[in-house]
Simulated assay, not measured.
Amino acid sequence: MGQEICEVTVNTGQLQFLSAPCARAEFAKVADAQYEANKRRMQEVIDSVTKSAPADSRQPWPLGNRR
């Protein structure tokens, strides 16, 4: 009985060790996809805001000639 428990424990540890790189790769794929989606959404927001701004409001930051 004790020997069987040890074998199961070792096999489970080996399985976890071997599956860790796959899990890491999948996590990286999901993170990359989320990053790209958020980057696109942010660019769409920036484009929308700049298109709806008045034509004379395009000054460099910080605001041009303060007195």
Rank of each mutant, 00 (worst) to 15 (best):
S19D: 10
V45D: 09
A55E: 15
A28T: 05
Q16W: 08
N11A: 15
A23P: 00
M42Y: 15
A55W: 07
A55L: 04
T12Y: 12
Q3K: 11
A28I: 10
I46L: 05
P54N: 01
A31L: 06
L15N: 04
N38Q: 12
K39M: 06
S19N: 12
S48A: 14
W61I: 08
L18C: 01
V8M: 08
A20W: 06
P62M: 01
A37H: 02
K39L: 09
M42W: 08
F17T: 15
G64V: 13
W61H: 12
F17C: 03
D56F: 04
T12M: 06
V10I: 14
E36L: 12
R66D: 15
A25G: 01
E36I: 09
S19W: 05
A33K: 10
L63Y: 12
P62Y: 00
G13C: 12
G2H: 03
N38W: 08
D56C: 03
L63M: 08
R66H: 10
L15T: 13
V8L: 11
A53G: 00
N65Q: 15
Q14S: 04
A55C: 00
Q59S: 08
Q16L: 15
V45I: 15
Q34R: 05
R41L: 11
P54K: 01
Q34Y: 06
Q59L: 13
I46N: 03
K39W: 07
K51D: 12
Q43V: 03
D47M: 01
S52H: 07
V45E: 14
S19Y: 04
L15K: 06
E4C: 02
Q43A: 14
K39R: 14
G13S: 14
Q43F: 08
Q43M: 10
A53K: 07
F17G: 00
N38V: 03
S52A: 05
A28H: 04
S52D: 09
V8D: 07
L15C: 02
L15D: 07
F27G: 03
C6N: 09
V49N: 02
R40F: 10
A53L: 12
V49C: 00
L18N: 08
C22W: 11
G13E: 06
F17K: 13
V10E: 07
G64S: 10
E36M: 10
D32Q: 12
S19C: 03
R58K: 13
R41A: 15
C22H: 05
T12H: 13
P60E: 15
Q34G: 01
E4H: 06
Q34E: 14
R40E: 15
V10L: 09
A23G: 12
